[in-house]
Amino acid sequence: MPHRFFYDGPFDTDQLLLDGSEAHHLLHVLRMRTGDSVLVFNGTGAEAEGVITNTSRKSVEIQVTARHAVQASSQRPLILATAVPKGDRFRWLVEKAAELGVTKLVPLLTERSSVDPGGNRLKKLQQTIVSAAKQSGQIQLMELAELQRWDEFLSAVSQTECRLLIADPKGSRIDLFKPVKNSEAAVVILIGPEGGFSPLEIQTALNQGAEAVRLSEGILRMETAAILFAGLIRLIESRDDA
């Protein structure tokens, strides 16, 4: 199967120009040459087949030979709203969430949060999302939102039709397989910081219709809880589609 590369733009021309990190990977890591076949995706659901027609030290020209129509995702929208872990653990969380097909990841600022990722760090994580999509075969890029305050995010999401789930060690082992009124409504997962959500934050979420879920008998790190929770949702969907 041809190697996949990310192209940041529409496929409205027969000639595409890869540059930057994607060109570097193609030329200097994979050592591909003129005449090799490639797959190109733009992160919006579109994908194209092509052949390398010309290369320079920092760029690659690709002749499009076939286009695949934009595909509507069969997966339910999955929004992961989480406090930010320290150090490189956040990059790992972003990478694994993108691999699992999380639709949108929202960094949260909660009462007990200790990490503010900053706008520059969030921008740098875009390449992590691209790499994860390439590795996992995703054709749509996960959206990484700006940092949002807990109360503002909860207020906004409560105005939408969704299933709201909050990770809480005191929660119940609820039935994640139970049917929902709208099978296309988004699932929103709420993950707190290392100290957990405050009692007031949990109660506020419950008042907005959230279901408190206990994921484990032990206490999980926030990135572990986030990926476990997201993985469970995607696993349930794959079982339903079987």
Score class of each variant (00 low, 15 high):
P2K: 10
P2C: 09
F5A: 11
Q15I: 06
L17I: 05
D19Y: 10
D19I: 07
S21H: 12
A23N: 11
L26T: 12
R31F: 08
G35D: 01
G35M: 03
S37C: 07
F41G: 14
T44Q: 12
T44M: 04
G45S: 12
E49M: 06
V51K: 07
I52G: 04
I52D: 08
T53S: 08
N54P: 00
K58S: 08
S59D: 06
V64A: 08
V64T: 11
H68K: 14
V70M: 13
Q71R: 14
S73C: 04
S74D: 12
Q75E: 06
R76P: 00
P85M: 09
P85L: 09
G87L: 06
R89T: 11
L93S: 09
L93Q: 09
A97Y: 01
L100H: 02
V102I: 01
V102C: 00
T103S: 13
K104A: 02
K104M: 04
L105N: 03
V106G: 06
P107L: 07
L109E: 13
L109Q: 15
T110N: 10
E111Q: 13
S113K: 11
V115M: 12
G118T: 02
G119W: 05
G119N: 11
A133E: 03
A133M: 06
Q135S: 02
Q135A: 02
L144Q: 09
E146G: 15
Q148Y: 08
R149E: 12
D151A: 13
F153D: 02
L154K: 05
A156L: 10
V157P: 03
V157W: 06
S158I: 01
Q159G: 03
T160M: 11
E161H: 14
C162Q: 14
L165D: 04
K170L: 04
I174R: 11
I174S: 11
V180M: 09
N182C: 08
N182S: 14
S183P: 11
V187C: 01
I189E: 01
L190Q: 04
L190M: 13
E194H: 05
G195C: 06
F197G: 09
I202P: 01
I202F: 02
T204V: 08
T204M: 10
A205Y: 04
N207Y: 06
Q208A: 14
R214E: 02
L215T: 07
A225W: 00
A230W: 01
L232C: 03
I236R: 15
S238M: 15
S238V: 15
R239D: 15
D241M: 12
